[in-house]
Nucleic acid binder design. Sequence first.
DNA 1: TCTGGGGTCCTAGGACCC
DNA 2: TCTGGGGTCCTAGGACCC
Length: 443
Amino acid sequence: MFALVDANNMYVSCERVFAPQLVGKPVVVLSSNDGACIARSNEAKELGVEMAQPWFQVRHLERTSGLIAVSANFELYGDMSARMMAIEARYAPRQEIYSIDESFLDFTEVRDDLLTIGRDLRRAVRREVGLPTCVGFGSTKTLAKLANHVAKTAERKPDSYPAELARVCNLSALSAQELEAVFAGTEVRSIWGVGRRIAGRLNEAGIQTVLDLVNADTQTLRRQFNVVLEKTILELRGTPCIEMADAPAPRQQILVSRSFGKSVVDVEGIVEAVSEFTSRAAEKLREQRSLAGAVNVFFMTSPHRDRDRQHTPNVTIPLVRPTADSRQLVTATVEAARVAFRSGFNYAKAGVMLLDLQPESVHQGELDLFGDDQLDRQPPAKDQAPLMEAMDALNRRFGRDSVTLGSAALASGGGDVRSWSVKQERRTPRYTTRWDEMSVVRC
DNA sequence: TCTGGGGTCCTAGGACCC
DNA sequence: TCTGGGGTCCTAGGACCC
């Protein structure tokens, strides 16, 4: 038996904890550059704001409907998430943190009443971090996800499902008829693993609801679609196909990318951005104790500006030897950026990917097969470690970017002189992670 | 007219997730 | 004027092997 616990409108709810005047109002959280809506309060959903909808398309609702927008404050959300996850972990022997606002809990060995556990858990999260959640129970992870969807939808739209399924929903406790009614009342698009594309094709094949899908022939659908869909159907029928993953596996690739605040036309702007993104990616790499065997650099013009000539260079460079040293990684990506750059284009976004990741332990003390001069310029991973460790430690203690590489420091030193830097005009204070941004209580 | 029969590995692209 | 930023998995097709 599994549970899925999910915070309601996570980012908006985090903002509301510290700004209670936002409760009950239509609120959206904006992506970097205040470009698109990445979280919406229920009231904003009611106004018709869609997920990932460009801000400029809904901006008029500020005046006409009192819509409130804030810039994303990921430092705050990450910290709130960690606190929430720690509370949830108390309620089950095993937890899989699935995303910033969701975790699976494994109740296989637990004999107590699940609805009671679910209600206690919700109360604890609400009381201790102030976030509203919904809990779904099911005999497979896909059913737990579905139960969570039912719990949330029943709370938000009272006529969608029976009221007793709101907030905490255990699909395993339902009778066969009740379960069938839930399945019949849920569109396939709401299932975990069925996206827009597959849903469209299923609809064309006459499969509209979860009930239709559960009753369909798996072999036929596997042929027409793929094994992933087959597993989904089996899970909906109660056969577990997706395991719990309690220890997060190390990432297989690390990506840092960003849209620019305004377009970049010169090679130095691209180089600044690429070197900063590489530094950030290298920090993440060292955090999970891995080395990268290759780097990828890309930048692109805006596909939305159809009058602009388009150019989307993308270069992958294998490294002579896997490394986690920011200097070597930056050297590689900057060189790639200079080679790929063409003048005469309005670049709108750039990114750096670290690839062929491997555990750093594999390479410790390894002797070199090649003794050529190329390798002399790139010392073995173990010799580079102390400097990078010191840099990471300083940045952890004194805040991000306290110590940076020369090339990246050029970009961020002395205030924001970066031509490409992101716009974040509405960011709220980082209440829980910065001393100078804490809330002040006046008596 | 008719052009083998396996394998493996890699990559690009498409689908999905939040 | 203005359109997010991360990730994962699967599959098809090509290169290459004997």
